[in-house]
Design a protein around this nucleic acid. Structure first.
Lengths: 329, 329
DNA sequence: CTGAAAGCGCTTACAG
DNA sequence: CTGAAAGCGCTTACAG
């Protein structure tokens, strides 16, 4: 490994000067500068990141904590983050909690010990211990997807998105609308979307019927099972539409309906949220809501970079969404 | 930040001893050991990774180079890699070339300068400059998806998978089988799968018809366009089946066929490769080949870890596959 | 069983 | 415009 000392010797200068030239800090005569740059070029010298990091307390690495790496949403978000940070020569250190809440906290600490310059967290839940762990790191930090009190958050407009979807169903004449949600420890997906559904129905004077409501776990399978349970118990007054809070679960619900010979949307209309690639290619194509994940990732990265430069940022950035009407309604 | 010196002072020992206890290297009296561990626990001390890395030349980080992060294949593979390396407390540093071949080479060098302990590359092409760049790093290295001469590679059995698929089509009575592939700078997907198709047809005495063959770029859209071009020029002797080398392109092809009123599989059978989630939920469901991406990721990670411990590994590991028959044939 | 000292490869006041 | 020196937080022979 060539080091800064080697370069210094070869260029007949001190390593101080080499450092200055490489970092564009302080003066250096044109002559010396060129000589150094030429040698750097020839040798392919790259400064040791660890040494630099040890000295400057900056690592050039951004930590990203994901609930599950192998999902379309996650990879889109990471794509957006990467696009922005790569431009400023930052790398991403990815950690995957595999939906384990303890790991979220553990990774926050781990990333700190790895000297990351900032953290972006895609969380599926919000709790005090997590918040405390983040606070203790004292690091630039962005929460994406959930509003984390006290931290800059990039969130989707879950409430209004779900209101719009429910309203759309009502306007199409549906009165008995079923609902498949997720657990309420997830404020964004579990609580906001459900509240929107409930409030909108009530506003229109429709009764909330517990028999029409189910809870899944994000998986296609759980959408299938939820739909099955609803249909098993609705007797002679079954819903004419079902609002499912994620595309994957919606697709599971559609599977069950198709298996049972229901026609979509004639017998039952189905809607999702997420605008996954799949939603476009299932039959019938799924009416859903597009969140701009990649853009959210970009936004989060920009905010993190701003924080790292000590710029003040607002608390909360709400991303826009778009309802995509397709054939399942 | 608490450092090893703080811990040493608090425990009334030298930092040498603290280091030994923390790394389980060399002796330490039970008494001292307990005292140190207790203080570490209380303070939440975590050793500085940069300092450690500077000193030991090991970073505890594995570099992964991906052609495109936001794909199902990539995220499955990364999931598998992560599963294995996380157990040994390694982190993954992800880089995304966005299908830019220059970036592959650039990232190989960048990862080297970041002192990663090893590199796993998911490549879409093979060229001499890339091979040279990898050689120069002198780092443990695994190629996944492509056989890289001179390096340990984890590959899929592209050739036989494509042979099996073509044979299956032939056994179903198809004689005029169209083909949608990708560019030949991709040895695995572009060359092997195509050769298998061509050889299998020839073996059965069927002519290879250029009008039946198209090249896409992995996108759904390109499958759509490829199918369109084939159908525009086949006149009165159109194919009765089309073998598409990726699921996404196959789904594009199906879109076009459905739009034009073709029945699948009655008028034209369609097959893909990849067993994406989508392939299961499109209508009709897509006959495809399952590669075990996550397992390939695990295998690559294990081999890398083995190399890092200076264990010798074989050159080439061929992953198994499974043909999944569904409704599109 | 324990510690003093050197050194990993950088950057940054400080001095000239 | 340039350099000598200190120091970032560790680990590891070496000595006792």
């Amino acid at each position: 490994m060539t080091t800064i000392n080697d370069i210094a010797k070869m260029a007949n200068v001190s390593r101080t000067t080499v450092s200055r030239v490489l970092n564009n800090s302080g003066y250096a005569s044109e002559d010396v500068r060129k000589r150094i740059l030429k040698i750097v070029e020839e040798t392919g010298y790259m400064p040791s990141v660890s040494a630099k990091s040890l000295r400057t307390k900056k690592s050039g690495v951004i930590g990203v904590i994901l609930p599950k790496i192998s999902t379309e949403t996650a990879s889109r978000v990471v794509g957006g983050i990467n696009e922005v940070v790569a431009k400023e020569d930052f790398q991403i250190l990815l950690t995957d909690t595999e939906l384990d809440k303890e790991k979220e906290i553990e990774y926050v600490r781990l990333l700190k010990s790895r000297h990351v310059d900032g953290i972006i967290l895609l969380s599926t839940n919000v709790n005090d211990r997590l918040i405390q762990a983040v606070t203790e790191t004292n690091l630039p930090f962005i929460s994406l997807g959930q509003a984390l009190p006290g931290f800059t958050s990039v969130v989707y407009d879950d409430y209004h998105a779900a209101v719009d979807m429910t309203n759309m169903l009502i306007q199409k004449g549906h009165e008995k609308i079923a609902f498949i949600g997720v657990g309420e420890d997830d404020p964004a997906v579990g609580v906001l979307r459900k509240n929107a559904y409930v409030n909108t129905l009530e506003k229109h004077g429709y009764a909330i019927d517990d028999r029409f409501m189910e809870v899944g776990d994000f998986s296609i399978e759980s959408g299938y099972e939820g739909m099955k349970r609803i249909l098993k118990r609705c007797g002679d007054q079954c819903p004419t539409a079902v609002f499912v809070v994620t595309d994957r679960m919606a697709i599971g619900a559609m599977e069950y309906l198709k298996e049972q010979g229901y026609r979509i949307p004639e017998d039952i209309a189905v809607t999702g949220i997420g605008a996954s690639t799949m939603s476009k290619y299932v039959s019938p194509s799924l009416t859903t809501i597009q969140y701009h994940n990649k853009e959210a990732g970009r936004k989060a990265a920009e905010l993190l970079l701003a924080q790292m430069k000590n710029q003040k940022t607002d608390d909360k950035f709400v991303q826009t969404y778009r309802l995509i009407s397709r054939d399942s309604v």
